[in-house]
Write a protein that binds this DNA or RNA. Sequence first.
DNA 1: CGGCGTTTTGAGAGAGCTCAACATCGGTGG
DNA 2: CCACCGATGTTGAGCTCTCTCAAAACGCCG
Lengths: 183, 183
Amino acid sequence: MIMVMSDALAPLFRDASLRSFPAGGSLFRMGDAIVSMFLLRAGRADLVRHSGAGVRMILHRAGPGQVLAEASAWSDNYHCDAVAAEDSVVAVLPRLEFRRRLLAEPPLAQLWMQRLARSVQDARLRAEIRSLPRLADRLDAWLGEGNRMPDRGRWQEVAAELGVTREALYRELARRRVDRRRA
Amino acid sequence: MIMVMSDALAPLFRDASLRSFPAGGSLFRMGDAIVSMFLLRAGRADLVRHSGAGVRMILHRAGPGQVLAEASAWSDNYHCDAVAAEDSVVAVLPRLEFRRRLLAEPPLAQLWMQRLARSVQDARLRAEIRSLPRLADRLDAWLGEGNRMPDRGRWQEVAAELGVTREALYRELARRRVDRRRA
DNA sequence: CGGCGTTTTGAGAGAGCTCAACATCGGTGG
DNA sequence: CCACCGATGTTGAGCTCTCTCAAAACGCCG
């Protein structure tokens, strides 16, 4: 297994038990009592919330090394659902132990606060990018943040990230291909 | 002066000096070295970032009781500009002292982590709301989160929050008025 | 009253969404 | 090897919605 920067939280989840979820499996549901914190070890998991008129919103797609539902550490009930988007493995640590370690070990607290602050930055930026009216501007802003187009077969993920349909993104990419050929 | 819930961070900024900024004044600019943390005491301040093609994005509009640029505590240079949107007063605390207090006083650390986690939640939800294609859905989702329409004279702020033009919001509101009159 | 900002409404253009058809690619199984 | 299948990529046409520009009605305050 490859060690990546995103394993930085491993010390916080030392001695945590591992649990596997098949794609589509539910990690928790809105309203459930919060007993544990989850660190995604492999796979992907979505935080999903349903708005009044049945509109399904994916609040966050977590990848390996990320903790799900950061706010759940200090809350008693979940405010959204969590679903495995792929076959996934998570480290599970009791919520109270998670909190105890954060408050007892300043290095971990510092790491956690850095993580949270970074997540705030990212989420705010994403909100602003998505509020740009034109797709071209969204793509420019997104690419301008150091993001790069993934390999073929994963372009739809970019469309989702930008909050547009895949057709719209395909058209924009085609437009840029011919524009680049002209230049 | 009225004491509100948002004064919870006051202990963290005890002994901090106060500084005033006129509307339009600059608190800091992208690239500046970070020496202090800012807690907004009165007024409003915007975090502004400029994307490549000159697109101006307001990452966050902070109000009284909020700390500006949370991530700056652990960073050496600002990643965005901060501008006073109104005449404002801020408490200024050296960044290293801010960090020292967080790591030395677990109750403050806990409060700070709760704040950050809540900000993550809020920002992610805002990003999802803004990615809804139809304004009606955005308004529904926003109202569904416990938000309420402010008094007349501040509806434009809601339009900005939803990421639409004020005209579009006015039209939607007019539509709902007649719809409600029919029902 | 006379500004100034907000709210309201109109008309046209532009952009994305929806539905639809089709191409392409990788894998599966006959 | 080839037929088939599903998912992804590509392109077209029409519709809907928002944006933009514009004009006017309010509402507040000096």
